[in-house]
Structures are given as structure tokens and as C-alpha cells.
Write a protein that binds this DNA or RNA. Structure first.
Length: 275
DNA sequence: AAGTTGAACAACCGCGATAAT
DNA sequence: AATTATCGCGGTTGTTCAACT
């Protein structure tokens, strides 16, 4: 496990990017693609480490980024996905085309957490706060992790624990997850989620576990059934700013919208074979 | 007007995973 | 098989700016 070499290099710029730096990076990647990130700064004439260039590109310069405020639908979707995936922001981001993991993480920490608490929902466990407080006050041999610093952690087995909780709770009492009840009106795109929650979440888990690292470098390709959710972006008014310069979407020039078009709408596992 | 506070956003850091040698 | 280089992720910190006192 070698440390990232750039960590030790001196004389590299840090902090906010200037417009000139942005332009250099944009020009370079536009012409040559990023290739090996560690060589990008040198080739682009930047006094930055490759890691910094990569981050800047992914979080800010990529042409397929949506920018702007999150819609209510997006926020709701983030909450739902977080309930299943926990803090796996990159996984969540793959279901929100045009949004970055960093952006979603920031939104979660600065806004959504607060809103959930105001609604009486613990943002870490997605359970009612009263229930969480009660379990804190009277600790049992439960393996459930405590809140605050330890969010839902799918990788530790807690996810499945939480998932089973969610599966039963959401199926039976929508009020425990307001987004699944009050806010998901039939008029919203989330009405597409009218599939049994258990099937939906299991599909997600299966695809997530089998395909954990697949999306990042080749573009955020959403998995069914969320791909249906996202179709409204392209098919119902192109809400993502009408961004058609999609050749950036990944290096294989597979367009997100192309995948939506090509993919059959009913087979989540079929999709996995394409990634 | 100046200082303080908090929200939102941008970027960095450290680590694990994995490909390459 | 061991080591090294790189990538990608999540947590954390830093910066900016608006609202408030």
C-alpha cells in the first residue's frame, strides 16, 4: 500500500482553483482525456498534484455536471438511497446523474440531516428519533451502531440489519420514512418506485455488491430501477440543463441516455452484464 | 459599520483496493 | 509473492458569504 506520491511533493499549489488553472485543466482533458491522473498536471502545465486535478475535474469541471440546487425529488431519492446504502456517497451519486458524491455528501451533512431531525427521524438510522433515544438510554446487546459519527454502515453487516428493519418498516408503515409516504406523491417521478420495496432494495443490494467499483471511472451509470427514476431527466424535459455534450460521459462514449434507451426496463441483473 | 455565527460549498487528507512491476 | 504506484472513496477541514446582533 504505497502512499500517494503527490502527498510528499513540495511546491505544489493547494487551495482554491483559479480560473486559469481550470482553463488549463479543461483544455488538456478536452484534447487528450485525463489518461493517467498523475501525469495530467505536468502535461497540462499545472502546479497541482494529480489527485487534486482529478477531484477538480470530477467535482467541478466535468461538462455533464448538473450544478444548481437539488430538487425535492433528488433530495427524497438521496434519503431513500442513504437508508439502503449508508454513507456510500459514490454509490448514491451513480443514481443521480449530474451530481457528484461530494455534492451529495455536502448536501446531506449541511441540510438533509437537519431536515430529517426536524421531522423526528434519526438521519443515521432512519428510525424515529424517539426510538433511537430509547435504545441509547437502555443499551442492549443489539449490534446496532450508535449514531452521529457512525452512519449506516452497509459493509459491516449493519446494512443488512438496517435493511431488514427498513424492509419491514417501510413496507408496513410508510410514516417511518416520510419520503416514502408523504412526499412521494404520485405526481412525482418517484411514483415510478411503485415496486415492492423489498424487491427494490434487494435489487439494489445485489447490484451494489456485485458492482461496487464499476461506475466511477467510466461514468455514473445508474442501476435499475433507479434508472427509470432518472429517465425523467432525459425524457421528460431534459432537466439537467439540456447537456448534450455527452461524449464526456465516459471514455467509452457510452451515453447515459443511450443506456436508458437501450436497456430493457425490467431486468436489473441484465444491466450488470453491461458494466 | 463592525463583529459574530452558521450554512453551503470546495478542497484536502488518509486509507483501502487493486493494477502493475 | 512481495512491493510499488495509482485510483477512488469517505471523513474532515478550510473558505466564502449572507444573515444576524
Amino acid at each position: 500500500m504505497g502512499r500517494h506520491s503527490c502527498c510528499y511533493k513540495q511546491k505544489l499549489r493547494k487551495g482554491l482553483w483559479s480560473p486559469e488553472e481550470d482553463e488549463k485543466l479543461m483544455n488538456h482533458i478536452t484534447k487528450h482525456g485525463h489518461g493517467c491522473w498523475s501525469t495530467v498536471p505536468k502535461l497540462a502545465g499545472l502546479q497541482r498534484c494529480g489527485k487534486s486535478c482529478r477531484l477538480r475535474w470530477i467535482n467541478y469541471l466535468r461538462p455533464d455536471l448538473k450544478r444548481g440546487a437539488f430538487s425535492q425529488e433528488e433530495e427524497d431519492l438521496i434519503i431513500e438511497l442513504h437508508a439502503v446504502l449508508g454513507n456510500r456517497w459514490s454509490q448514491i451519486a451513480t443514481r443521480l446523474p449530474g451530481r457528484t458524491d461530494n455534492e451529495i455528501k455536502n448536501l446531506w451533512n449541511s441540510s438533509i440531516k437537519k431536515k430529517l431531525r426536524q421531522k423526528g427521524i434519526d438521519p443515521n438510522t432512519h428510525k424515529p428519533l424517539a426510538e433511537v433515544e430509547h435504545s441509547k438510554a437502555a443499551p442492549t446487546i443489539s449490534t446496532e451502531r450508535t449514531s452521529e459519527s457512525s452512519d449506516v454502515d452497509p459493509s459491516s453487516g449493519g446494512a443488512l440489519g438496517n435493511l431488514s428493519h427498513l424492509l419491514s418498516e417501510t413496507a408496513q408503515s410508510p410514516e417511518l420514512l416520510p419520503v416514502l409516504g408523504k412526499h412521494r406523491k404520485e405526481t412525482t417521478s418517484l411514483a415510478h418506485l411503485r415496486v415492492p420495496p423489498k424487491e427494490l432494495f434487494l435489487d439494489q443490494l445485489v447490484s451494489g455488491h456485485e458492482n461496487l467499483t464499476s461506475c466511477r471511472s467510466t461514468g455514473p451509470i445508474p442501476n435499475f430501477p433507479f434508472q427509470q427514476l432518472m429517465c425523467y431527466n432525459d425524457e421528460c424535459g431534459n432537466k439537467n440543463g439540456g447537456n448534450n455534450n455527452s461524449f464526456w460521459f465516459n471514455q467509452n462514449e457510452v451515453r447515459c441516455s443511450t443506456i436508458f434507451t437501450v436497456m430493457p426496463t425490467g431486468s436489473p441483473l441484465t444491466f450488470l452484464t453491461l458494466t
